[in-house]
Nucleic acid binder design. Structure first.
Lengths: 155, 155
DNA sequence: TAGCTGTAGTTGATACATCAACTATCTATG
DNA sequence: CATAGATAGTTGATGTATCAACTACAGCTA
């Protein structure tokens, strides 16, 4: 190993700090807006989107977890809270006695359908329309590249 | 469903989803790595960095909150936890009886000095060195532009 | 100087994230 | 078929984030 501490140079540091700050503020804002106007948290929203993405509105815990890249425990806790509020329901799994399905309820559908349009308006206003198409494409490319690196490291 | 909902087109959607995923995975990973190798959370790290950024290692709550863009309440809770672990201390403020300072302790300095180099290695490996300089610059530019939009909206 | 208004920071409640330990069921292998 | 090991999901503990309500002090104005 080298003795060098790999400090960032001025330009790298500027970019990195701006990005960190963006990370913090943007998703805080999006979550707060969602909560305020639709009573859904960012977590609720993610789950409901994943469920409406499949025809039945119904996924095994493991598949749902895979779709949104969450830990099992996190999903289990979150789903419990959402069941209490009637947004989703739990269904036993006939083929595998250990397994279970999460199903979106009519009330959950209503909630996501009410929340999504406004959420998209905000995403557009703050991000999509703030960037010219090349920058948006660059953001996608950059994100994918970093994600590859992350996934390449076992952890 | 109305037609005037501003859905994202395929390309926008790809970019946006990649970015959201990056947001979730990158900072989860950075936080976990920090926690594992230095016993500091991302929150601890941010506070300690802000404190070492000033000569005295000492800031009023309000200035610290401003520097890292946190709510007062969040900072208050976080500092309480850090005091318990000896990373920072609270000092009364002579000029303003309502105010207080947060000061980094020798133990806090030790912790941040131990944590920072490794943290930077990971940031470099996952992000800085994963991107060519133009993309990194683009990321900084993009971040700043979106941040401007966020700050322009009162909330 | 009494009272009003604003500011600094705290506190308690609730939701969320993460970890480790746990239960129940499945599957493979003898 | 017995059982060991793997897999699906749950649970409790702890730390973190956010909101609203609160205390205490500051500074202004009458």
């Amino acid at each position: 190993m080298t003795n060098d501490v790999p400090w960032l140079n001025a330009e790298e540091d500027r970019s990195w700090r701006a990005f960190v700050r963006l990370h913090q503020k943007l998703f805080r804002r999006l979550g707060a807006d969602l909560e305020t106007h639709s009573g859904l948290s960012g977590a609720d929203f993610q789950i409901l989107v994943a469920l409406t993405d499949v025809p039945e509105g119904r996924l095994r815990f493991q598949d749902l977890a895979g779709a949104i890249d969450w830990e099992r425990s996190r999903l289990s806790h979150q789903v419990s809270r959402m069941i209490k509020r009637g947004l989703v329901a739990r269904e036993e799994c006939a083929e595998d006695g250990r397994g279970a399905f999460v199903v979106i309820t009519p009330q959950g559908r209503e909630a996501i359908e009410a929340a999504a349009p406004r959420h998209l308006v905000v995403v557009r206003r703050l991000v999509i329309d703030a960037l010219d198409p090349e920058d948006l494409a660059a953001l996608g490319r950059i994100s994918s590249r970093v994600l590859e690196r992350i996934d390449a490291e076992p952890r």
